[in-house]
Design a protein around this nucleic acid. Structure first.
Lengths: 194, 194
DNA sequence: CTTATCCTTTTACAAATGTTAAATAATCAA
DNA sequence: TTGATTATTTAACATTTGTAAAAGGATAAG
């Protein structure tokens, strides 16, 4: 059983999206567990079915997959971000993606099946989750626009303005694949900006 | 009031996602209206707030927006597809995108505010909608992968294998912008395949 | 049928990005 | 600290994609 104060940041995150009754909070708290992963270790491996919803309590993580033997970073999760492999969680298929800690990281994990069962008795939790998905969906649509219609240099500038710390914290090769370009190309862009 | 038999295709579409009670169906039916739009006319203009969820009953439509004065196609909706401008519907901001009929098209429209009010009394409708968003989210994540990590030629081949009719029905310039390339580039790809 | 318009392809050239390999720079572990 | 490993940049060249303009086709209206 996790100490409730350990979950403060997570519960605040949820309450900002949808206010919850004490009973709803308790039933969510009852499902939470803490998982610590050391830097560069995987929380979840490629090929596993995704049955857990994660939240980054402390640290930094990414979702990546392999394309022609190369790692491709799909998503960075910072402190107080959710990290969900939607293509597996919502389809039941094994995920082609892994979750890796980029620093020593503490995750909060919620088993999805148990969470989804709460939907039947507590509509406010289903509503919370619906809103979470809506937000994630909108973010993905906007990211798709950025990838499709901004040149690589614009995308780098945009990422840099949104997350200036990223460049210090994360190997550039991960950022390159996140931007959909090679590391060589990213180096050129960085050189041309200076 | 729309004749219920007019909505058969739509109601089937919904029931496949989440089975609904007769009362839930009736309350959805009560919100539906039919809108006919002639080929090349817009159902919704750029700059309008999106307050309606649409379904293509007959015909063909797209979502597009302007990038540096050029039209960029974000999404094609075929018969029995939903067409939703999520970035506006879920944020309340004016949409940067328009919905255009590519053939003479009949849409079913549902005002989103009235639909969302049904969520309070009919959790099964909220559940239906949650699942719809989940599916749309997964589709968008997969499309993002395709755009980011497949070369243009692969993306064309993939689209062609999924939607062989598209190439006959839709001007190639729309397909080019949907694939994130210029029309000249698409012509080259088509020539190299032959 | 003829003209006008729009769609698609082609050409020539420019710019961006990828590939491979080598050279530096930074980091980690013994 | 030293050596080994990893990360980043640079260089040279190939490939892809973009841009602008022209040409050829298809389509629709008069």
């Amino acid at each position: 059983m996790v100490n409730k104060t350990e979950l403060d940041g997570f519960l605040n995150f949820l309450q900002k999206i949808q206010s919850l009754s004490p009973e709803a909070i308790d039933s969510i708290v009852g499902l939470c567990s803490l998982i610590s992963i050391r830097k560069n270790q995987n929380l979840q491996e490629i090929g596993q079915k995704c049955r857990t919803i994660y939240f980054v309590k402390e640290g930094l993580a990414r979702i990546y997959y392999l394309k022609d033997g190369n790692e491709v970073t799909e998503y960075f999760a910072f402190e107080n971000d959710l990290i969900i492999r939607a293509e597996s969680l919502f389809t039941g298929k094994p995920s082609k993606k892994a979750i890796q800690a980029l620093e020593n990281t503490v995750f909060i994990g919620i088993p999805s099946e148990a969470l989804f069962e709460l939907f039947d008795t507590k509509p406010e939790i289903e509503r919370l989750f619906r809103k979470i998905i809506e937000q994630a969906y909108v973010a993905t649509v906007l990211r798709m626009e950025a990838i499709q219609f901004h040149a690589a240099e614009e995308r780098y500038a945009l990422l840099f303005s949104e997350k200036p710390n990223l460049i210090q914290q994360i190997p550039l090769k991960h950022i390159a694949s996140y931007l959909g370009i090679t590391q060589v190309s990213l180096s050129r862009i960085r050189a041309s900006i200076r």
